[in-house]
Design a protein around this nucleic acid. Structure first.
Lengths: 142, 142
DNA sequence: CTTGAACCTGTAGTTACTACAGGTCCCATC
DNA sequence: GATGGGACCTGTAGTAACTACAGGTTCAAG
């Protein structure tokens, strides 16, 4: 019922952060999460700082940042020095990528729904979808 | 200047279809493209049917179909029997996936631009973006 | 007949994990 | 103090769809 906790096991950390155990170990291996202390029997023991860090990583992943981008963000955060505008640069770059991806998918969606609409679903020997797939790109996408 | 050609090399096929050479060999290895004939020295020799098939695969990839989906499409096309509605099913399923992905990215975009807009880019010690990343998901995305 | 470009096979690397296999540890209960 | 079974450990291999070599062979023009 208080804020204290000494020694969070990997299972507990996993439940608190909703990051699965293998992923936690993976993040440690690639250096996104600092190596925690260990018990006598080599079991990992985490503290509150690990919870915060892993939450940060998880949230960043949810927002679509790559692990490399997260690594950059963490460096900026750890650097401490006036990094807000740098963080903003990384974020805006990512936002731009997301918008591009949306645009690509919307073009795709248009082409695809156009192609699909040509087909009436009968048992036609020459399916218009199949014909479209045999033709080297000329449609609406570009 | 005519329609005849006997023996297309892998390099030619690559240029005609704009699929790179390693990818062509990869498609052969995983069974998407039938193994072609060979010269005495074991160089691959393709014919017009290979051009058509590879064009189909490439176009399908451009439209975002996975290799497994393309495999299914090819089975249907090869089956020959009244497969148009089956093709349509695969296509509509894919279209649905694309639309879902667009929706996911749009939600992401909203959250991300909201978070980014909080930051005025100064040298603030407590960056609002960083703060948002330390907080376990509560925002607009759901 | 000699280059050198094109081709060959096979393996390893990429992203972000997940899924084992085969073992060890912790701790609650008896 | 013994025991049992869940949680933990390391390390490797698999996923999608390629790309990039390394190290060797073949083709075709001159």
């Amino acid at each position: 019922m208080d804020g204290r906790q000494q020694g969070i096991s990997i299972g507990d950390l996993s439940m608190r952060t909703e990051v699965n155990i293998e992923t936690i170990r993976y993040y440690e291996k690639i250096g996104l999460l600092p190596a925690p202390g260990r018990t006598g029997g080599r079991h990992r023991v985490y503290g509150p700082a690990h919870v915060a860090r892993l939450t940060f990583v998880r949230r960043s992943r949810e927002l679509g940042f790559s692990l490399e981008e997260i690594r950059s963000l963490l460096r900026l955060v750890d650097g401490g020095h006036s990094s807000c505008s740098d963080v903003q640069i990384v974020t805006l770059k990512h936002l731009d990528d997301v918008r591009k991806k949306i645009g690509d998918l919307q073009r795709l969606e248009r082409t695809l729904s156009e192609v699909a609409s040509r087909c009436q679903g009968g048992s036609v020997p020459d399916c218009p979808i199949v014909e479209a797939l045999y033709a080297p790109a000329q449609g609406a996408e570009a």
